[in-house]
Design a protein around this nucleic acid. Sequence first.
DNA 1: AAATTTATATCACTTCCTTATACAACTAGT
DNA 2: ACTAGTTGTATAAGGAAGTGATATAAATTT
Lengths: 144, 144
Amino acid sequence: MSAEDAAIAGGFESLFEVLRRLTPRSGLSLTAASTLWRLSHGGPQRLCDLHGPEGISQPAMTQLVTRLEREGLAKRGSDPADGRAVVVSVTDEGRAAVGHRQEGRAQALAGLLEGLSEEEYASVAAALPALRKLVELAKGGPTA
Amino acid sequence: MSAEDAAIAGGFESLFEVLRRLTPRSGLSLTAASTLWRLSHGGPQRLCDLHGPEGISQPAMTQLVTRLEREGLAKRGSDPADGRAVVVSVTDEGRAAVGHRQEGRAQALAGLLEGLSEEEYASVAAALPALRKLVELAKGGPTA
DNA sequence: AAATTTATATCACTTCCTTATACAACTAGT
DNA sequence: ACTAGTTGTATAAGGAAGTGATATAAATTT
């Protein structure tokens, strides 16, 4: 690992802390938000397909879905192909909740971006494709 | 907020998810790691000075310090200037724990960075100063 | 000296996670 | 067709991690 790798890692570590604080602690938990986002974009999914990618256990996801259902953010349905399976879908309210949350974060970030010079801003924009590549690489799996 | 702002926000949102998963869920919680890091770099601090920047309540920090102390990662001391105050310091073990955690994340990130082209890598490196500026701006407060 | 403020611990509670387990539906093997 | 094995989900018990309310003592202000 090079010194430049280490510098990037350090920079990302600090950035992570900043991004983490963009959202008030009240409201959706990280896992709840991520799950609702996943359902919003990927469509209804089985409970057993949700817990793995979120990195939590099946019973934890069962409980989370129960809470989300109670709050009207998601709902349970059945799978005609398998009588055991629960298919979870996001409600309009849940979709809105994730949308508002993301919007708030984007607004807060936009506020920060205003403090950058044109050059600095351009360098962030120029790095976007690379950041997106990192995201793809991370999804690919074994590299990470 | 411009389209480019939105694109950057979206990219950062995805990046955040990736960075979040660089650390196994077991081990230190986000707040515990952040607190230990803060003590490692900023030196011993009063309990009442720790909970605000971490964004949690005083009783939550009291409990966290109790847990960290139980695990040998931090210890309580007294403040000669104020009989009520508890001064929290990190132990060598706690310092090592944060160090290992950060190292693991850096290694994982370095693995991802290897998947970038030279151009992509350079664009990330070039954006580092701007990212650092964002971090500073966020610390400054009212902007965010 | 009394009143007010501050620092911390404790309480009762919820959320969010873990492992273990129970039960039923499904699949594979005979 | 029947049995054994596997899979999907719920539930139980417990700990971590957070909340607001409260109690107590030390410190500061009036």
